[in-house]
Design a binder for these strands. Structure first.
Lengths: 136, 136
DNA sequence: GTCTTCACTCTCTTTCAGGTAAGTATAGAT
DNA sequence: ATCTATACTTACCTGAAAGAGAGTGAAGAC
C-alpha cells in the first residue's frame, strides 16, 4: 500500500487559495534544480569571492570533484546564473562570475542562509528532545 | 585526474571575509536537510492549508509515496518544524501542522519561492540561448 | 466472518547521483 | 624528449535514495 498517493479527481479544494499547479510544478522544478547542494555552495563561493577560476572555486567549495564542479558550473551557466569567460591562452584560463540573475538568487537565498544560521541551536535542541522522547 | 580537489594548505585567503568553516558546515548541513524536494513541498502544503491529515498532505503534495511522506514528516517533526497530533481513535487520525519554527522557515523560503516564480522566464530564455549557442 | 478505513511499516528492486581514475590538448620550460 | 600546468572529458563503479507493492492492527459496519 505505498505506491504514490493518488491526487483526488478534481473537486477537492477545501481552501480556495490553491496555486495553479502548472506554476507550482515549474517553481518546483526550478527550485529543485537550483537548490542542490553544490549549486548553493558555488553560489556562495562566487558571491563571497567574486570572479574565480575553476580550480579556485573547487578549493573554496571543499570536497567537490572536478566532475561535479564542471557539471554544476555548466548547469549554472545554462540557467544564466554564472558567466564563463575563456581566455584563449595556454594553459587554459577560465573565469567564472555571477550574472545579475545569479546575484539576485544569492540574495533570495540569503534569507534561508540566515534562517539556518539563526536556528541551528533550536533545531539541535528539537532533535535532542525528539530523540530523548523516543528513547525514554 | 578527478579526485576531490584538495583544499589549499592554510594561508590562501585572498579575501579576508571568509566565514568560519564550522559555521559554514553546520549551515550547509541544516540547509541540506531542510532544502530537499519533499521537505520544501510539504512545507508549502502545510503553509497553504494549515493543519492536515497524513493522506491529505500526500494528495496535495502530488506523487509522493507513503514511505517518503512518512519519512519526510518524521524528519520535520524531529527538526521541530511540524507538530504531530495523534487522536487515539480507530481508524487512526493524525494531524500535522507547522510549528513557529516551521512557519519561520517557510517565510525565509518565501524569498526563494518568489524568486523562482519571478525568474522562470529568464531561466528558460537563458537555457534556450545556451542550447542554441551550443547546437549552432 | 469479512470488509473498510487510516497511518503507517517492511521488503524488494531499481534508479541515479556522485566518486575515482585515467585521458586530452597545447605550449613553454628544462 | 619529457614534464608541467589547466580545464576539462570519458568510462566505470558503488552506495544511497526512493519507488512499488504487500502487510499490519483495531474497531465498527454489514
Amino acid at each position: 500500500m505505498s505506491a504514490p498517493i493518488p491526487r483526488p479527481a478534481e473537486p477537492r479544494e477545501t481552501h480556495p487559495d490553491t496555486v495553479d499547479p502548472r506554476v507550482e510544478a515549474l517553481v518546483n522544478e526550478v527550485i529543485g534544480r537550483v537548490a542542490d547542494k553544490w549549486t548553493m555552495i558555488v553560489l556562495e563561493v562566487l558571491t563571497e569571492h567574486g570572479e574565480l577560476r575553476f580550480t579556485r572555486i573547487g578549493e573554496f567549495a571543499g570536497g567537490i570533484s572536478q566532475k561535479m564542479l564542471t557539471q554544476t558550473l555548466r548547469q549554472m551557466e545554462r540557467d544564466g546564473l554564472v558567466l564563463r569567460t575563456v581566455h584563449p591562452v595556454i594553459p587554459p584560463r577560465v573565469e567564472y562570475r555571477l550574472t545579475d540573475l545569479g546575484l539576485s538568487l544569492a540574495e533570495a537565498f540569503c534569507g534561508v542562509w540566515q534562517w539556518a544560521e539563526a536556528n541551528i541551536a533550536r533545531i539541535e535542541h528539537a532533535r535532542a528532545a525528539f530523540d530523548a522522547a523516543k528513547a525514554g
